[in-house]
Design a protein around this nucleic acid. Structure first.
Lengths: 220, 220
DNA sequence: GCAAATTAATGATTTATTCAAG
DNA sequence: CTTGAATAAATCATTAATTTGC
């Protein structure tokens, strides 16, 4: 068995089983393409999810342990298998989230590899999880907490120093919700026309630059 | 994919939240300050390396030393040596750079794991190199070429005193949809740039994501 | 009630910035 | 100053929530 050790990103398998990982290139080429397989129906999804949660160690074997390769040539196959087996993204269980948040609360922000491994193992008790999920969780959580902080600061600022009837502040959805005191739960589409001169819409809106040069070359 | 390994997680508390090892880590969250990275002691390094976990999103193969072309147990030693030797960063030889630039010139931007491995092997003939070096090189080169491009565009613009080449207009959701005619749903961000418009590669190309090698530097 | 349609939340990727060695 | 390395910010994409029309 070879084990390469530790090289930078490599993880050392305790058994010869894995390693390849290249496969992880989960979504390989069809990067942006809509999944060939039509989206699962909600029923199917529910079932799948439920099953998965209740029986973590079972599903998707190929996804979690592609045993092959250490040679590039095989990776392709692995990728295919992996894709077919329906690689779904990690969906944290309440227990997992609880623990992660506790750690974050405790001050953890960017756990090192050793810490990540420990956390992964601990969380593995509650459901399938990988180190990268933990890593990503901290990255995202940290970033989003920052955003929240920044926004609330802005909000406070706009509120305190607002001689203007309609402060020109770009509010985020959550803030708008907050602002309206929860009386208007959603229906964001119409929020823009409420008393607040908020013109922001859904998450799909963005500032775009016109004149795409070769849009057809991207994705398709 | 998966694996885990070495980490010995002795004594697994059933109530993780109290695990001292967890919270102990990064108690500080220096917002912007980047702590001086104290040089790791060899002992620390060994430990870190030995338990490196990494489940980097993509790239997981052992992109390590050149000399272990096919797999090997030597990787460990090389890594250690490299790290212990004062953590010198990769210093590309002229031959290596020449080849990399040739590849870039040929259109390569974000080589996939397989490609990276091949490149690493090839470049290994001229000097020590790891997959991550190749990865970083492409990332940086791409980014810096972009900066250069942007700067020169700005200069040209200032010189000609011409109006903005790409007027930014805030489109509404519906307009965006209409504008794109549904052929390209998203991914509009880089359209404004000439260079970027053509940079995309074939369907087989994948991007690699890095896993922080020494996150502990932030925390200590 | 229910299932399609919408919207919000968030996992995963990519790009921009920053740090610091040489 | 150049550039390898690393992190943060922005973005993309999928899943869960919620709403809506029947």
């Amino acid at each position: 068995m070879k084990v390469h050790a530790l090289g930078s990103w490599e993880q050392v398998p305790s058994s010869p089983s894995t390693s390849s990982s290249f496969s992880s290139s989960s979504a390989n080429d069809p990067k942006r393409l809509r999944p060939l397989a039509p989206r699962l129906t909600s029923a199917a999804v529910s079932t799948a999810v439920a099953t998965e949660i209740s029986a973590p160690p079972k599903l998707r074997k190929s996804f979690s342990s592609p045993m092959t390769a250490k040679c590039a040539s095989i990776d392709l196959d692995v990728s295919l298998i992996q894709m077919q087996s329906g690689g779904t993204r990690w969906n944290p269980t309440p227990e997992q989230i609880k623990l992660l948040e506790a750690l974050y609360q405790g001050g953890m922000r960017t756990p090192n590899p050793v810490q990540i491994e420990r956390i992964t193992m601990e969380l593995g008790k509650y459901g399938r999880i990988e180190g990268k999920n933990v890593f990503y969780w901290f990255q995202n959580h940290k970033a989003r907490e920052r955003q929240k902080q920044k926004r609330s600061e802005l909000l406070a600022l706009a509120a305190s120093a607002a001689p203007l009837p309609h402060p020109k502040v770009q509010l985020q959805k959550e803030e708008i919700k907050e602002f309206h005191g929860g009386s208007c739960k959603r229906k964001c589409r119409s929020w823009g026309s409420l008393e607040l001169a908020v013109e922001e819409e859904g998450p799909g809106d963005r500032t775009l630059e016109l004149f795409p040069l070769h849009p057809e070359r991207k994705q398709m």
